[in-house]
Design a protein around this nucleic acid. Structure first.
Lengths: 152, 152
DNA sequence: GCATGATGGTTTCGATTCGCAACTCACTGG
DNA sequence: CCAGTGAGTTGCGAATCGAAACCATCATGC
């Protein structure tokens, strides 16, 4: 069975022409991005996801099923054993910028000054630098310097 | 009063030491980020948010209250008139990278090839370039080249 | 000065979703 | 053969959501 790309996965998007809204229809709940976060950090099995997130088992079951159905996770046989495991697809892996942006926003705005939190480091242990959008000329972009162009 | 430096929005975070989880506790639902998106695109009034998102009025009322309580939106008197309006605070404004990352992910993975969608352009009308994280040495970063360092 | 219509919500209430706990099923090590 | 673990499913009460109705405050038309 060929994996058809995306053939209207749901009967109706919240806002069909906005990519932000479509993305949120797929991962815009309390748990999906935490599952993706843990998958990026090495979680593979149902129990491991459950242990890391603390999510209720029936909800985890539902989220794993939905993320799989939407093509963010794939189920495959574990290499060293007969059990199944969940791995990120390319689309799931590609959520890295979203998770990183959320992480850095959280570090800046959801912790009291000096309050301890986990951080993201590169393979040498150095902190990941600030992740900020820039225009083609290198100037920083924000909501004031951009606008949404609606479809024609 | 007793407004301590810590906001303490809820009795307990989902995962207190993870900035991703704290960020999702604040904006990780289907609607909050769409409200922020529209605020970034110029929405100011209750009715305007309602018209753009299509959210139920009671839920919008709740989200505006929570976003305000968490310091992402502020209410102030409209300049031309005596009605109130909602504007992004610095923390809300600072969600721009999150919304942009979601937008670009949505464009790549939630639309069929060739399917029309709105896009983000700069003040000259040029499309915003790809927003991808890089390490301090300029190499691209992803989940494979980074890891979470837990707090000591 | 009173009907009419926005604006900015709140209330009501049925439907949906959540989350805890208990249960099942498959397999596995002793 | 039995205990234990992984991977879910089921049942059920509690919390949340959403559509529609309702309410209060202004502003305008007349």
């Amino acid at each position: 069975m060929s994996r058809a790309p995306t053939r209207t996965p749901d009967p109706g998007w919240t806002d069909p022409e906005c990519p932000v809204a479509r993305a949120l229809d797929l991962v815009g709940d309390r748990w999906s991005l935490l599952v993706v976060r843990d998958a990026m950090d090495g979680a593979r099995s149902f129990t491991e996801f459950q242990r890391r997130t603390g999510i209720a088992r029936n909800i985890l079951s539902d989220r794993l099923r939905k993320l799989t159905a939407h093509g963010l996770l794939a189920q495959r046989a574990a290499p060293s054993g007969r059990r199944q495991e969940y791995v990120l697809t390319e689309a799931g892996h590609d959520l890295f910028p979203v998770v990183l942006a959320l992480r850095q926003w959280g570090e800046r705005h959801a912790f009291a000054p000096g309050e301890a939190h986990s951080t993201l480091v590169d393979r040498h242990g150095a902190p990941v630098p600030e992740f900020a959008p820039t225009g083609s000329d290198g100037t920083p972009l924000d909501a004031g310097t951009t606008r949404v162009r609606k479809i024609r």
